[in-house]
Design a protein around this nucleic acid. Sequence first.
DNA 1: TTAAGTGCAAAATCTTTGCAAATGT
DNA 2: ACATTTGCAAAGATTTTGCACTTAA
Lengths: 150, 150
Amino acid sequence: MKCQQIKLRTFVIRKITMKTTRNTAARSAILDLINDSHVALSQPSIQHKLNGLCDRVTIYRVLDRLLDDGLIHKIVNVNGVVNYAACNSCNHKHEHGHDHEHVHFSCRVCNELTCLDQVTPSFLLPEGFQAEETFFTISGICKNCQNSNE
Amino acid sequence: MKCQQIKLRTFVIRKITMKTTRNTAARSAILDLINDSHVALSQPSIQHKLNGLCDRVTIYRVLDRLLDDGLIHKIVNVNGVVNYAACNSCNHKHEHGHDHEHVHFSCRVCNELTCLDQVTPSFLLPEGFQAEETFFTISGICKNCQNSNE
DNA sequence: TTAAGTGCAAAATCTTTGCAAATGT
DNA sequence: ACATTTGCAAAGATTTTGCACTTAA
């Protein structure tokens, strides 16, 4: 309860002060990486791909900023690892976070996390529960690994 | 790929050697806690409830063992926190993990994670993807918080 | 008795914070 | 010029590992 209020307040402050976003090397490198990737990337994998271009901490901060700016979204994989992906299919309509009604697929073999923008599961909630966001991840074997196994 | 093989091997060894499970104080206390809870519990919340009865590390190890024995299942909440719940509705039919087709509900207000055993979403995967397990979590406001808000 | 389980200390991982220096606009 | 962003060091938080000690069966 308290936590929610604090978050909301921070958000309002950011919008009022209207900080300008600077196009730094770190920011564009990270954004390019995420935009060019067909799978979601974790901080460690981004760090590895950047290969020392910038500090560990900078990556965390840039990712937070990109989230804030609505350019990427955050997906927690089934193993608890946080991943980031480009916001192609979001329409930002929810009050509490973006609209990410689409499903994610977590491959057991290559361990990659893919957005399945087309898939929208249907479900019926029991009385009394009010849904705001869905986090649907299906694990199994992805297209690539399936094909390369034949 | 390599990781998968190692995991499989460990699993086989455990089944062959057939270790006997000892009914220790820690194990039964933790299992009781999880069985008696209507929501999923995280390691920190279990540790708090046990109030120093056993070591932090023991809790991790007992939880691993209970998972292994199929008495509990693991749910990663939308914030990445790992939770554990009793295996009431599992039917253990999958080769890669249990069958947890049911949905979990994560409450934004009380932060509790509940199993919705009745709910089974339907979806259609794109060609090439092979589903084995589903990890479906819906966040919003749970029954309790909805009611207490009226 | 003795293998399984535990406690403690220490390491490993991932993430956040504070502050001074660097940099984009 | 100056507010934003970065790097570094350090702290937090969570989970794992090694090893000697304890305990259930």
